[in-house]
Amino acid sequence: MTDSNAAAAADRARAGADEFSEVFNRVKSQVSRLIVGQDEVIDGVLTALMCGGHVLLEGVPGLGKTMLVKSLGEALNLNFSRIQFTPDMMPADIQGTMVLTETDGGGHELTFQQGPLIANLVLADEINRATPKTQSALLEAMQERQVTVGRRTIRLDEPYSVMATQNPVEQEGTYPLPEAQLDRFLFKQIVSYPKEEEYAAILERTTGEQEVVIEAVADAESIVRLRAVARAVAVPEVAQRHAVHLVMGTQPDSDYAPDSIGAYVALGSSPRGAQGLILAGKVRALLRGRFSVSTDDIRAVALPVLRHRILLNFHAQANRVTSDLLVEDVLQSVEPPHTAS
């Protein structure tokens, strides 16, 4: 490659990175108009959206989980739908079903009535209240980006992202998500209580006269374009190896696993965890003005990517060891390649 070609290629990459950062920050500022604080959660949700992944938001009621996703849909001008999961909800309620409709001539015919799953941005509120049967209906949509009802298969439009919320407190009458479904979420974000200084802003925005209006600052096309930009970010060997080592560090009986993993983990992360680390690391590198993923990017996104992919055993639950502690332990024990002394 000649110098001019190289310079042109670098300029193209630089332009794509700049556009990415600009759109990302614009959407974030719009969402932040309604959601006070929670920067990490907003970054995680937007990162997952730019990666083409899904997000599981966990937090006690009243912290703005549903509002966050709703405002995100408004800021991106995406086709947004919300499903409130209940125990009696059936797969046909979210996928759609064939209904008998009356035609103009007085006859009847079976037509497909699509469910709320067919949208760009789906808010699956309190997903753990649905039965496993209904939860499993989400699997095909989340992984294959399609919905099959009877003999009909519907391709879902891009961008497609499922933002699910669940409440960790009300365990009565809930159905914990199966591991196969948890693995399909790119991030699991923990929504925590706001800080003291954030309460004033929350009260001011929600109890005042003026209603906050979210402007649409991006659309589906721009999101799809920016996704391609994010996927084009270069990944050096050192970052790739570090992601693999971190994922293997969560697996019991692995060479990279610390002792705590062997004692408290029944099932470690799958290769999807490594995919998530790399994808999220690419977005993070772009946002920080770099064109190549570093090991710091991988380590920074390790907690939200890996925390829900670790299945704890009975001893961990008895000793109150959380997956967050275990991921921190893995991060401490697995050092980046070439710098491990």
């Binding site: 670098a10 064109f291 190549s292």
Partner: peptide, 18 residues
Amino acid sequence: QYLAKAQRTDFEEAAVED
């Protein structure tokens, strides 16, 4: 690593320049 490659992508070129 990128300098050792014969064909580099746009982002690899940008990373080398960086």
